[in-house]
Design a binder for these strands. Structure first.
Length: 1100
RNA sequence: GGGGCUGUAGCUCAGUUGGUUAGAGCGCACGCCUGAUAAGCGUGAGGUCGCAAGUUCAAGUCUUGCCAGCCCCA
């Protein structure tokens, strides 16, 4: 026997338990006070939800439920999830709840399917963001200050900074029930992790993938390091740059200028050539000189003349770009000594006539294309701006200027010298340092690369096998990225990161890549087991070149791109290969990962690339790519707009389940979604509380009746039609949801549950209330309890992956605490299996018909203006098809009670003939058959048949109904139409008091006899008394005494006739006329034309 | 400049291989019902399916071009 259990119970203040019941209520023959289920109050508010969720959290913690989800499953199939490590040095926001909700649901589902799923947490700890935080804290703004401060001290601060907000991350992770093992989380700064990354790099080194090269890279002068393309991608900002047209004087042709366009004036002192398109048409035009004296001649692409010059110019010559190649011009600036030939026109295939002048200023030091062109023509790489972003001393005029500041000085210098043709502004997206917002420059530097291009085809091939959600990312965003793949720029000239494990011989330049600490110890000739692998300690390790007569070997100064760190987690989280060799095999690749869409070029790519180059396998098989979170108005959430929603506020008001549920149901996962507390509150209102109240209803009545799951449930085939219908719906739902989980389809794993709960609550339970309410225990009642119980327990399981708290509460109360043999947590229970034999589409179709007829009946009542409370004698239904009659008869009681009618009948053929004269036919020539068959004639045929008058239509309709084909003559042509190619809709002109819809008719008998009126009055009285009970705050099963006075004659008569009915409905022990004293709750009532005063009190 | 996604009622979203008169929920108005429910039911108002052309007997759906929003690349 179940008794009160422990401290984790809900105190719901039930008023209904343990009382003797009589009359309508079952008397407990044993007179025992038992609470079979823990009582559940129907009230829902923030406090109730928070208390409930807190209790489940306590339960999980005390009972190690998460830990136990992996225990004893050594032989179970593996399901592998990778946690994309967040950087803990920022606070978590609502968008993190989004991704955690999606990360959590599939592992939970798989665990319920019996899988073994490790969910190891991790933290991404290296990189520029951390360094920048620390620089801010120390008030630094350049690398020199760090060197001065000391790299050891600086890195110590970075290490400390990383976990600044870790406490809050852990709290949010737990509160939202994201099950991930944070106690054993991998940390990218740990020696073991770094060593594993070194091992990967060594593999790449051995494959010849790691190399040092010169390259124009997006470079951040403010942080003194090149940025990876992922980082660049994050920093694009729309800015306004100068847009200038500059005259380059052609040598030996006074008054002739090449007109070039640029948006980076600061690169002009580094100009080495001008590029033209060989096949582009150019013109030489003549016009008044812009400096006011005489004429000048300008050369530019013909297509751009009008754009750039406007009118007033005369074309003096046309030529192809190829003719311009080799023309020499006077350099604008000659600050730097140049040995090679330069300052002439070259051809390049990237020259377009989209904008500019078709003549492209080329500065090999400051552009990707420029450098390529420079290499091809052996042009000088003129370094006019150095790595601090300032002009070098040699460029005397602009010496020391920040490159962006120099733009305006250069512009005015050129203007003064008469070389500026025109000056405008240009708005475009330009990359910035994603952390400090300062502009990047493209800058030729020597750095380290991974030659990803060698594996480009492999990556493309492997990507085709990955299941992307949404699927367009595979060939779209991610596929395009792979098609356009660039080398991976790996080196970072920074401090807080995984050091690049390459040592160089000072004398010979020979290089060694070190793949682990043991290897390094051997080279160094001492045990380095305790060495912190970070800078500066690792920099101190030097050794003699082991290959003989070389010199000392020193490590290169670079650390590596943090994206390599996080992409390496698939290997490095296991400290592979030093340990866990078997685990790596079992845990690679991942079955499932999930992050926001901005990781396409970030973590998704680094995982994919590393797996492809290391193992030639995928890194993940299924990936959900989430859209961003927007505010209620569809704007991006940001600190500066102040529209970010604090996740804790949402959790406090609505709880984690509703928060999660909103994320799953609000739309396709890849789409951006609007978010606000109001939208989450709607979840409570529409779904959470509906389910909760159904659950509460069940528990309340099961306890009153002493029903427990141990009571034998009637076989489904023996149950009431309504129950069979619900089971059909339930098992359809189980199939739908299971399939959706298998397909990583979160929307269809959740929305159908909402629809089911709606039907469960507002149709099944509402119509079944009397079955639970009645006093006798019969097969009908047992059938109802068993069915509702099965639905609720299945729902608890179907909801476990998505609403871990509410489902746990329901499961524990309904299942675990009832039966010690069951798993004690829903999350350790088995996923429900759909029973095909119960999925009966006929039942579902029948119920749809019943609902349609009820709707029609209610509509008719509405039109008749007789409230539903007033019983009517009967209603007649006409059906569209005789085969539908059995369904209606089977559910006749249900329809009668819904419509409050005494009897109903289906019109047979004879009765229906009463309507026959008013029968209306409509023909619907089916487009899917006839469209193809008759082509352009179809429109006319359709119009004739569909819109013809009854006299025209009737003969066709009757033939079709008799199963014959028809022939239509139209404008002299004959069209043979097969029977199945044209639909006939029969409707009837509904008579007075009847309503027709789509061929169905309901006719209410609206004649009110005095008996019916009296019964109506009785129901009015019941309703008023129930209201009074509520107002007086009586308990559901409080028994009462009723007195009434000043009743009109008709009321007296009603009381006489219906006192038993009224007493039973209102739980009254007495109902009699008399003087109403002060201790009665009382009210004077007007019922239609009648009146009385009524008083009631609890039974004394 | 290039690519991806999105655009359907005031709001949030459905809408199968092109095929009957484009749907649901929320919100709104009126009415009903109500001792599980913060609910429920009925009726109604609310749509040039972003715009334009094209293909087709037939386009919310396919094609092209534009417009707007978000994201990415250059």
């Amino acid at each position: 026997m179940c008794t009160h259990r422990g401290s984790l119970l809900l105190d719901t203040g039930s008023r209904s338990s343990g009382q003797m019941r009589q009359g309508r209520f079952r008397v407990n023959p044993m007179e025992q006070v038992t609470i079979m289920f823990r009582a559940v109050n129907s009230q829902v508010n923030s406090d109730v939800i928070n208390k409930l969720e807190q209790q489940q959290l306590d339960f999980w913690r005390f009972n190690r439920v998460f830990e136990r989800s992996t225990e004893g499953r050594d032989d179970a199939p593996r399901y592998v999830f990778y946690e994309g490590p967040p950087t803990a040095n920022g606070k978590p926001g609502s968008h993190h709840v989004l991704s955690r909700a999606f990360k959590d649901m599939f592992p939970r589902y798989k665990v319920m399917q019996g899988y073994y799923c490790l969910r190891r947490g991790g933290w991404d700890t290296h990189g520029l963001p951390v360094e920048i935080e620390v620089e801010k804290e120390l008030g630094f703004d350049n690398k020199g200050q760090i060197e001065e401060y000391g790299v050891a001290e600086f890195n110590a601060k970075c290490r400390a900074n990383v976990f600044l907000h870790i406490n809050e991350w852990e709290k949010l992770t737990e509160r939202t029930a994201f099950w991930v093992n944070l106690d054993d989380a991998y940390v990218t700064f740990s020696n073991e992790y770094i060593e594993s990354v070194w091992w990967i790099l060594k593999q790449f080194w051995d494959k010849g993938l790691l190399y040092r090269g010169y390259k124009v890279v997006p470079y951040s002068p403010s942080s003194g390091t090149p940025l990876s393309s992922h980082e660049v991608a994050q920093g694009y900002k729309t800015i306004v740059d100068p847009s200038i047209y500059v005259r380059f004087p052609v040598r030996d042709r006074p008054g002739v200028y090449l007109l070039a366009w640029t948006t980076t004036p600061w690169t002009l002192p580094a100009n080495a050539a001008l590029a033209v398109g060989e096949d582009v048409d150019y013109v030489q035009v003549e016009g008044p000189a812009t400096d006011g004296e005489g004429l000048e001649q300008l050369i530019l692409a013909e297509a751009l003349v009008e754009n750039v010059l406007g009118d007033g110019y005369k074309i003096v010559k046309r030529m192809k770009g190829s003719e311009l190649v080799g023309w020499r011009y006077k350099p604008l600036y000659t600050f730097l000594p140049v040995e090679q030939d330069y300052a002439y026109v070259v051809a390049a295939d990237y020259v377009s006539t989209g904008d500019g002048t078709g003549i492209v200023h080329t500065a090999p030091a400051y552009g990707v294309d420029d450098l390529a062109t420079g290499r091809k023509h052996d042009l000088p790489v003129l370094i006019t701006v150095d790595e601090t972003g300032c002009f070098v001393d040699a460029v005397s005029t602009f010496r020391g200027m920040w490159f962006k500041d120099a733009d305006r000085h250069i512009i005015s210098d050129l203007s003064e010298r008469g070389l500026m043709y025109r000056q405008e502004t240009y708005e475009h997206a330009y990359p910035h340092n994603w952390r400090d917002g300062s502009p990047l420059m493209y800058f030729a530097r020597e750095t380290w690369f991974i030659d990803t291009l060698k594996y480009k085809q492999k990556m493309i091939e492997l990507n085709k096998t990955v299941n992307w959600v949404p699927d367009h990312v595979r060939d779209g965003r991610f596929g395009n990225w792979l098609d356009d793949l660039k080398e991976w720029s790996l080196g970072r000239e920074r401090y807080w990161g995984t050091p690049l494990p390459v040592w160089v011989d000072e004398q010979t330049g020979e290089m060694i890549c070190v793949g682990g600490v043991d290897e390094l110890s051997e080279l160094a000739g001492r045990d380095l087991g305790d060495l912190d692998l970070h800078r500066p300690y690792v920099d101190d390790i030097t050794f003699e070149n082991p290959n003989g007569d070389g010199g000392t070997m020193r490590r290169v100064p670079e650390v590596i791109d943090v994206w390599f760190d996080s992409g390496a987690m698939q290997v490095a989280q296991w400290s592979y290969p030093k340990s866990n060799r078997d685990i790596l095999e079992e845990q690679h690749p991942a079955d499932y990962i999930c992050e926001a869409v901005d990781q396409t070029r970030g973590w998704f790519y680094s995982l994919h690339a590393i797996a492809a180059m290391l193992f030639e396998t995928v890194s993940f098989k299924n990936v959900i790519c989430l859209g961003h979170i927007l505010d209620e108005k569809g704007r991006k959430m940001s600190k500066s707009l102040g529209n970010a929603v604090d996740p804790w506020m949402v959790l406090e008001q609505a709880g984690a389940d509703a928060f999660r549920w909103y994320m799953y149901t609000s739309g396709p996962p890849g789409e951006p979604r609007r978010f606000s507390i109001n939208l989450v509150n709607d979840v409570i209102k529409k779904f959470w509380s509906t389910l909760w109240n159904t659950y509460s209803f069940f528990v309340t009545y099961a306890n009153i009746d002493g029903w427990t799951p141990s009571q034998a449930a009637p076989d489904p085939s023996e149950r009431e039609p309504l129950d069979q219908w619900l089971l059909a719906e339930l098992h359809t739902l189980i199939m739908t949801v299971t399939n959706a989980f298998e397909a990583y389809d979160a929307v269809n794993a959740t929305r159908p549950i909402e629809e089911f709960v709606e039907r469960l609550s507002n149709w099944y339970v509402r119509l079944s209330r009397d079955r639970f309410w009645k006093s006798e225990v019969d097969r009908d009642k047992l059938s109802a309890y068993a069915t509702l119980y099965e639905a609720l327990t299945a729902l608890a399981k179907l909801l476990a992956p998505t609403m871990p708290f509410l489902s746990e509460e329901m499961y524990r109360n309904l299942v675990a605490e009832q039966n010690g043999a069951e798993a004690d947590s829903v999350h350790l229970s088995r996923w429900p299996a759909a029973d095909d034999t119960l999925v009966n589409e006929g039942l579902i179709g029948d119920m749809a018909l019943v609902q349609r007829l009820v709707r029609l009946g209610l509509s008719a009542r509405n039109a008749s203006q007789i409230g539903v409370r007033q019983p009517l004698a009967d209603a007649q239904f006409a059906l569209r098809d005789a085969s539908e009659a059995p369904a209606l008869e089977r559910y006749a009681d249900l329809i009668k009670s819904e419509l409050n009618i005494k009897s109903l009948s289906v019109m047979g053929a004879d009765e229906a003939s009463a309507f026959a004269s008013t029968r209306v036919y409509r023909l619907n020539p089916l487009p899917r058959f006839l469209g193809r068959k008759f082509g352009s004639d179809f429109k006319a045929i359709q119009a004739a048949l569909r819109d013809g008058d009854q006299a025209f239509v009737r003969p066709f309709a009757e033939k079709l109904l008799a199963g014959e084909d028809i022939t239509l003559e139209l404008d002299g042509s004959r069209f043979e139409i097969l029977n199945e190619e044209c639909e006939v809709k029969v409707s009837v002109q509904a008579p007075e008091g009847a309503i027709e819809d789509g061929g169905y008719v309901v006719a209410l008998n609206t004649r009110l006899t005095s008996d019916l009126l009296a019964e109506g009055l009785a129901r009015e009285l019941i309703r008023r008394i129930q209201n009074l009970r509520k107002q007086a705050d009586f308990a559901l099963d409080d028994r009462i005494e009723i007195l009434y006075a000043d009743a009109s004659d008709r009321i007296d008569a009603v009381m006489l006739l219906y006192s038993g009915y009224i007493s039973a409905e209102t739980l009254a022990d007495s109902l009699e006329p008399g003087e109403i004293s002060q201790d009665y709750v009382q009210e004077t009532l007007q019922l239609r034309e009648e009146s009385l005063t009524i008083g009631l009190r609890r039974r004394q």
